[in-house]
């Protein structure tokens, strides 16, 4: 609004940061590639070593893109949930949506050893994992939506979301108990989270579904801002509450579902990035917040990925562990300092 200029400068700064981090993340790894070469290769030129071309085009660039999409998507989902439920604790994880995605995948992979048959062949296909994960996310979200419809108290909805999470974890335990070691391992690796291993075809599909989900945002900028005053005020300002709520929930489940499907569960980003963004930008206007949260989400996940790769070594840590280990202390520190959280 009146401070538009300040915000656009901050946003451009953040965009530059994303670009720089992308280049750095591509250059780092078990084989270190100079940034100048990285830029050359990305611009379609030839590098001094052909193996570098291969590494960048087939491994590091897809990984960086995945990090950007997943980071921004999860962070935006967190923002949407927090505004919709008017609760700073909301996020894809807290509401059990990620657990739902996990449950879908667990049923598919672990179910294969129990039920056999069709499951066995499906479990090996990445696409089946994607569908199972999205379906699981959508199912839990619908359950939350149904209870949200009956119960007005948002605190109760959050607790119910946590309960959904607990129940899914329990079901997964039961499934694990009856599964083969091989399937358990497959599921365990998926649940560690991983930004790599995506082919260009998969990146393409990821991007299309992501774009589809994100485009839902175009319809809800105004409702999101109006919801800052609560549903009654929003309604009195001409917002169709039910429709807006459905778009927000659909966008969230689609994004969380597809991201969790391709990368496995990634904790913390959805909950914490919106708070960090609000501390930096000091605004609640979603026209500024949505792009800012998206960019910062990418930044955070790119940084986490760099740490996970343990530069100069052969090992890669599970990304899900890194985001939590790094993120939780940051959020605690910010809140202790600030003493208050805002929507």
């Amino acid at each position: 609004m009146i401070l538009q200029k300040k915000y656009s400068q901050q946003l451009i700064g953040m965009l530059l940061l994303v670009v720089i981090l992308t280049l750095v993340s591509i250059s780092l790894g078990s084989v270190s590639i100079p940034i100048s070469e990285v830029i050359d290769i990305l611009l379609g030129g030839q590098s001094s070593k052909s193996s570098w071309d291969f590494i960048i085009i087939h491994f590091r660039l897809p990984k960086a893109i995945t990090a950007m999409l997943a980071g921004s998507g999860l962070a935006i989902c967190g923002l949407l949930m927090q505004t919709l439920f008017r609760n700073p604790l909301a996020g894809p994880f807290v509401l059990g949506i990620s657990s739902g995605a996990s449950l879908g995948v667990a049923l598919l992979i672990l179910g294969a050893s129990i039920f056999g048959g069709v499951f066995t062949s499906l479990a090996l296909s990445k696409w089946a994992v994607v569908v199972a994960s999205s379906f699981g996310a959508l199912l839990v979200l619908l359950a939350v939506l149904l209870t949200a419809h009956k119960i007005r108290n948002t605190m109760s909805i959050l607790i119910i979301g946590l309960m959904f999470g607990t129940v899914t974890a329990a079901i997964i335990s039961v499934l694990t108990f009856f599964s083969d070691a091989q399937q358990i391992q497959q599921y365990l690796f998926w649940s560690f989270g991983s930004l790599g291993n995506l082919s260009w075809n998969e990146i393409g599909a990821f991007t299309i579904i992501y774009g589809f989900g994100i485009s839902g945002l175009l319809f809800i900028f105004k409702p999101l801002n109006a919801l800052l005053l609560g549903e009654n005020y929003a309604k009195s300002m001409g917002i169709h509450i039910v429709r807006s709520r459905n778009i927000i929930l659909l966008t969230t489940s689609l994004l969380t579902g597809v991201i969790t499907a391709f990368t496995g569960p990634i904790a913390f980003v959805g909950l914490a990035v919106p708070h960090i963004t609000k501390l930096i930008f000091k605004t609640s206007n979603h026209i500024v917040l949505v792009p800012a949260v998206g960019l910062l989400g990418s930044v955070v996940l790119l940084i986490c990925d760099m740490i996970a790769q343990l530069p100069m070594s052969e090992f890669t840590l599970p990304i899900n562990a890194v985001t939590s280990l790094l993120g939780a202390p940051v959020v605690i520190w910010l809140l202790v300092r600030k003493k208050k959280v805002y929507l």
């Binding site: 008017r86 800052l228 605004t283 206007n285 026209i287 805002y342």
Partner: peptide, 28 residues
């Protein structure tokens, strides 16, 4: 209304400006 307004970082200007929502375009 007497409804409590949820904590947010809206400024007074932004809060008052929300009253214009029925008249503004899709991004407000």
């Amino acid at each position: 209304l007497t409804d409590r307004i949820p904590d947010s970082q809206l400024t007074v200007f932004e809060l008052v400006a929300l009253g214009r929502q029925p008249y503004t375009n899709w991004v407000g």
